[in-house]
Design a protein around this nucleic acid. Structure first.
Lengths: 186, 186
DNA sequence: TTATTCATGTAATTTGTTACATGATTCT
DNA sequence: AGAATCATGTAACAAATTACATGAATAA
């Protein structure tokens, strides 16, 4: 009954200091939303769950005349967080609809294949540009690790753009078909 | 209210000819399970749902003295499948726990960072090897596109291994720390 | 004969999103 | 005055997994 990844992200955010649910959402938006997101509909219930388990405590404070509920990591919560950090990570899961389509590419017209790949490359380029505009959340403890995932993301999308561009070239060379023995090597 | 990806994968499998739920599961296991999986708990209900929508028809047949329910794509089902194939794909979603940990790397000991990255690289290498052992599902219509996603997967994991190896080197050079201005370029 | 594979299905649970509901404060 | 942002939460729904339940046929 270990915590889920999102539950641990929330603990991790609180390890930088007390925060409200609203503030946690902001941090997630700024840093990990593109590969691990959480809506208010999960954040607030998770914070309550954490509190009931003694991983965090909460306090209602007034900040510039505004009420908010500040959550603070307890010793128990910190232990749970470190425990997760030091454990073996779950292997990545990818949900890549375009890759599924590839499986059934033989079923569509050659020119449609080219069109699909072209459109997809455009999508990837747009997304990479969006990534490059994200600025990492930097706290007083601001560190170079915050930038690391963005760097990873940019490189990941660069790889994808490259791979699909190669496929596109191959398809174009053969009028939307693939040679029996391909050699898509990067 | 368009079909989900898994619902379309099932239609796609049936586009190669009539199949039972059990056979569909086998095909998914052999080809897309590592990036789009489906358990019996989803396959059987989806087949029923497809039937109620008129996308497939079913027939109980005896095959070598064994009863099974064969599902067959209807014209309506084929249209739905092509419609999905020709539409814009949903952009990939990645759930990468290791990337999340990176965000909070400043919180753990330098030697633990190195250990985490080393363990992760081992995981990636193992997974890539497993991928390389998968043989694609090939039907009478067996085509080169079936191999394509496996090729994609192998290249994807090669990229990840490379990126994390570079990070590992960088960390080792600095005793588990990162220089203020990194230059992780691939 | 016993384990494995073939074969189908349901119930409970998990995990999460979306939409709704509410209201205060601050910026323009 | 009105729009945007700050702020918290719930209810309904969606999608899928895991565990359970069952049973026939075949391979060791």
């Amino acid at each position: 009954m270990s915590n889920t990844t999102v539950e641990n992200i929330i603990l991790g955010c609180l390890s930088f200091g007390p925060k409200s649910g609203y503030e946690i959402k902001k941090i997630i938006n700024m840093s990990s939303s593109w590969f691990y997101n959480a809506s208010y509909g999960s954040i607030y219930p998770i914070l309550k769950k954490h509190e009931s388990k003694g991983l965090v405590t909460s306090e209602e404070v007034v900040d510039n005349g505004r009420y908010k509920r500040l959550y603070k990591l307890t010793d128990k919560g910190e232990k749970a967080f470190y425990n997760w950090m030091l454990g073996t990570p779950r292997l990545m899961t990818v949900k890549y609809e375009m890759a599924v389509k590839l499986m059934f590419f033989a079923k569509i017209e050659p020119q449609e294949r080219i069109k699909q790949v072209e459109e997809h490359i455009e999508q990837l380029i747009l997304f990479k540009q969006e990534l490059e505009e994200i600025e990492p959340y930097a706290d007083s403890e601001g560190d170079s690790y915050q930038r690391l995932i963005l760097d990873w993301g940019e490189n990941l999308y660069a790889f994808l753009i490259q791979w699909f561009s190669m496929l596109l070239e191959e398809l174009k060379k053969n009028n939307g078909d693939l040679p029996k023995r391909r050699s898509l090597k990067s």
